[in-house]
Simulated scan of single mutants.
Amino acid sequence: MQVFSSLDLQQKTGEIQRAVVREPVVVTSHGKPRSVMMSVEEYRRLKAIAGEPVPDEAIAPPRTRNAVTVRGIDDPLGYDVSDFDAAVRQMLDDVRSGSKRAAVQAELARVRKLFGRCRT
């Protein structure tokens, strides 16, 4: 079992997450064991052995085919991207009608300014 300090937890998050997939890890504070981190699979296994329910947060939502998840990013053109398919349909309608042409040009200018140095 690997042991990491609380400082390691702040500085080596990726390394610790990779270690946790292989086996539980101990996190220490001031040299004393304070917590154990484990994979969700291991947590579920232990809950099942104990006959305890698994909290909803530890159960992966069912994946749907071709699903797209958009997390907490506001669309600069004002589209509601929580329903991605509906947002794309609305965007296409707006492109056809030209109703957001000025907003699109302003957003393109902003993107070009941010990424103008990038070459493909």
Rank of each mutant, 00 (worst) to 15 (best):
I59L: 09
P55E: 02
Y43D: 08
R71Y: 15
A48R: 13
S82G: 03
A67D: 15
M91K: 06
S82Y: 04
A19F: 01
L92S: 05
Q11W: 07
S5I: 01
R119M: 06
A109N: 12
D56S: 15
L77P: 04
A106L: 12
L108R: 08
R112T: 13
E15Y: 07
V25A: 04
Y79I: 01
K113E: 15
A60H: 05
R119G: 03
G51S: 02
R34H: 06
R63T: 07
A87L: 08
G78I: 04
E41I: 06
R119H: 05
R119S: 08
Q2R: 12
M38P: 05
T64D: 06
L92W: 11
I16M: 02
A102F: 06
I49A: 12
D83P: 10
S5N: 05
L114P: 00
L108Q: 10
V111G: 09
Q90Y: 01
R65E: 12
R44K: 12
A103Y: 00
R63D: 08
L114C: 05
K32H: 06
A106M: 09
N66V: 00
F115D: 13
V54R: 03
G31I: 00
I59E: 03
V36M: 09
P62F: 01
K32N: 09
T120P: 14
L7G: 10
Q10D: 08
K47T: 01
V111D: 12
F4D: 08
I16F: 01
R44H: 04
V68H: 01
V88T: 11
Q105I: 05
D75S: 09
A103D: 11
Q17Y: 14
V81A: 13
V95F: 15
R18G: 10
R44M: 06
I73K: 11
R101H: 11
K47S: 04
F4K: 05
N66C: 05
F84A: 11
P55Y: 02
R22E: 15
S39I: 04
N66I: 00
E52D: 07
A87Y: 08
A58M: 04
R22D: 15
R119C: 03
G98K: 03
A50Q: 12
K47W: 00
R18V: 10
K12N: 12
F115T: 08
I73Q: 08
P61A: 05
Q10L: 11
K32W: 05
G72F: 15
T64V: 13
R63A: 10
L77M: 07
D56V: 12
K47R: 10
T28H: 01
M1G: 07
T28E: 02
G116Q: 07
T69F: 12
A60R: 04
P24K: 01
V104F: 13
S35D: 07
G116L: 06
Q105K: 14
L114W: 10
P55K: 01
E57I: 07
V81C: 14
D80P: 03
R18Y: 11
G98T: 02
L114I: 09
G98Q: 09
S5V: 03
Q2A: 13
R22I: 13
A103H: 04
D74L: 11
M38G: 11
D74H: 10
V54P: 09
V54K: 02
S39K: 05
G98A: 06
Q11Y: 13
V68E: 10
A67L: 11
D83R: 07
Y79K: 01
G51Q: 02
A60Y: 03
A58W: 11
L108S: 03
F4T: 07
T28M: 01
V27H: 02
